[in-house]
């Protein structure tokens, strides 16, 4: 399908990609590369520039400056060619509420010019994959959030694209549906499809082969999950259990050797340059305050730790004007 494949090994490649809206810079000269067949996570908090980037890659927005290719096609010039080779699922539910499940699939089959036979095959596959066999004649409006998302994914990949872009596919759905969604994504990647996925759920990043963390329009970290935890995170993480944890955050943060402290449900994760020195000073603080039932353990940083500390590091280096 993709005649450009022999020339470029990257499914997506961008250099100094920039998008400004008036005085506001949504995406600030970012560069990255997505290899063929990998699940590439594009992570960041809300408003970081994830959707703007994905829209530029899909040919829905023209970049202000920079260069890049998707499936070998130029994102500045060949936007309509790109659209023939990709699948895109937007952040907001984008199927027709007032059409039934089958009618929506039929509509997109027509848009992608599937033959009658292909259409019938894909219809069954998509309905089965989304697990909505019982609702095929129901209006899409009546489906729950998770089913809607799975149907939307099915419609976006009816034409079996080589590269798919998913913009926050799991936002607002329950954990079981999220897990199910990720198994569909992994299965597609297993068949050689490149998956570019954005999310603000940091725990989902573990499912990605590689990822970047984007914050305020700038890429602040990039790598495999392993690289993120070892190379990027030079500091150690200490998990502190103490009664009334939330009251301790400010106190712990002000201790010497402690760079940062953040609440993770009932525990505090503190970022320290050195685990031994750090835990000694935290324990000393608890003893002085007369706290007895506490524990301080060095843990392997989760991706969430990496992201939180990367973002805080960025904020310290770039104070708001």
């Amino acid at each position: 399908m993709n005649q450009q494949s022999q020339y470029s090994e990257a499914a997506v490649k961008v250099e100094n990609l920039e998008k400004t809206f008036g005085a506001f810079t949504a995406v600030n000269r970012i560069s990255f590369e997505v290899k063929k067949g990998e699940i590439f996570g594009f992570l960041g908090p809300n408003g970081a520039g994830k959707s703007t980037t994905i829209r530029m890659l899909c040919g829905l927005l023209t970049p202000t400056s920079g260069a890049g290719t998707v499936g070998g096609f130029n994102i500045m010039k060949d936007q309509e060619l790109i659209k023939q080779h990709i699948g895109y699922m937007s952040q907001k539910f984008s199927l027709y509420d007032d059409l039934t499940v089958e009618e929506n699939i039929e509509f997109y089959s027509g848009i992608y010019r599937l033959s009658k036979k292909e259409k019938e095959e894909r219809m069954e596959e998509v309905i089965k994959q989304a697990g909505i066999e019982d609702f095929r004649k129901n209006l899409t409006r009546a489906l729950s959030g998770g089913w809607k998302q799975r149907l939307a994914l099915g419609c976006a990949i009816l034409h079996k694209p080589n590269i798919i872009f998913l913009d926050e596919p799991t936002s607002g759905v329950d954990p079981i549906t999220r897990a199910n969604f990720w198994s569909i994504i992994k299965e597609m990647a297993g068949r050689g499809v490149t998956v570019f996925v954005t999310t603000h759920y940091m725990d989902e990043a573990e499912n990605c082969d590689r990822m970047t963390l984007i914050y305020k329009g700038t890429i602040i970290a990039m790598g495999t999950p392993e690289e993120m935890k070892t190379d990027i995170m030079k500091d150690d993480i200490l998990e502190v259990r103490v009664p009334g944890a939330d009251e301790w955050i400010d106190k712990l943060e002000s201790l010497p050797g402690v760079k940062d402290a953040a609440l993770f449900s009932t525990t505090i994760h503190t970022v320290v340059e050195n685990a031994k020195i750090g835990s000694a000073s935290i324990e000393a603080a608890f003893k002085m305050a007369g706290v007895k039932d506490y524990s301080v353990n060095k843990i392997r940083p989760s991706l969430e730790d990496v992201f939180v500390s990367s973002i805080e590091k960025y904020d310290k280096e770039h104070p708001a004007k």
């Binding site: 829905l60 937007s90 539910f93 984008s94 992608y112 419609c155």
Partner: peptide, 10 residues
């Protein structure tokens, strides 16, 4: 929001 999906197709 249905237009966003539609204009991502050929």
């Amino acid at each position: 929001g249905t237009m966003e999906q539609l204009i991502s197709t050929p």
